[in-house]
Amino acid sequence: MEKIFTIEEPKFGGILEYPHMEISSGNTTFIQGASGAGKSTLLKLLNASLTPEEGRIFYQGKDIREMDTIELRKEVILIGQNVYLFDESIRENFRMYYEYRDLPAPDDETMKKYLRLCHADFRLEESCVSMSGGERQRIYIAICISFLPKVIMMDEPTSALDATTAGKVLDNLKKFCRENGITMIVVSHDEKLSEVYADEVLTITRRDN
């Protein structure tokens, strides 16, 4: 299977050292490891939010150090644990994120389709201000997945969700990504989720262990 990422022993922060790893295109890959092993940092290295001190990372065969980082992040979207939504309605959040990319906003039905995909079936007029962490997280995922990136990376995407909702969201996202050729990379402490949804599991360990 084609590899979308080849990770050649990057080091970061004078502490984190990663082994050689590969991530297959079109798969759902879970990244696991103990706290402090550098799982969240690895995601940031993969979309060039951070730069390794040593080693190299290749995206579709290209060294990401030689790529336009803005364009890379459009194709490789990272959804961190702290999502950012504007203090506006859901519709306005879609519009503002599309405006940031100089793209026309999707119509209401398209917005609703992506919200349903993420089990965030709220009225578009609803304000995001008073929503819970889990609700905001699902809305943000809906906006990000609507861009149809080549890679969607999520850091603990179900941490604010109950088990039933988490399962429904991951069910939908995995099916959607598979149908649309999107590679999904998930950092999760929940080994049960990886057993159900992962095509591949990468485990990283702290070097001081």
Rank of each mutant, 00 (worst) to 15 (best):
T29V: 12
G26K: 07
D63K: 04
I77Q: 15
A34R: 14
K74S: 09
I77K: 15
H20S: 15
R56A: 09
E54T: 09
F30T: 09
L42E: 02
M67E: 06
E22C: 09
Q60S: 15
I31C: 04
T41S: 07
E17C: 05
L45E: 05
F58S: 01
I15T: 12
D68Q: 06
R56T: 10
K44F: 00
A34M: 10
N27A: 12
R73S: 05
G38I: 00
E75Q: 15
T29I: 13
L46P: 01
S40W: 01
G33C: 02
Q32R: 06
P19K: 05
G55Q: 08
I15C: 07
I23S: 04
L72N: 12
I64E: 04
G38W: 03
K74T: 11
G33T: 03
L43V: 01
D68S: 11
I70C: 03
I64R: 12
I57Y: 08
S35V: 03
D68C: 13
T28L: 06
T29K: 05
G26T: 01
G33W: 04
G55F: 12
A34T: 10
E71I: 07
L45M: 11
T69Q: 15
G26E: 05
S25M: 14
L42C: 02
E75L: 11
M21A: 06
F30P: 09
H20W: 08
G26M: 00
E75T: 07
Q32T: 09
R65W: 07
Y59C: 08
T29R: 06
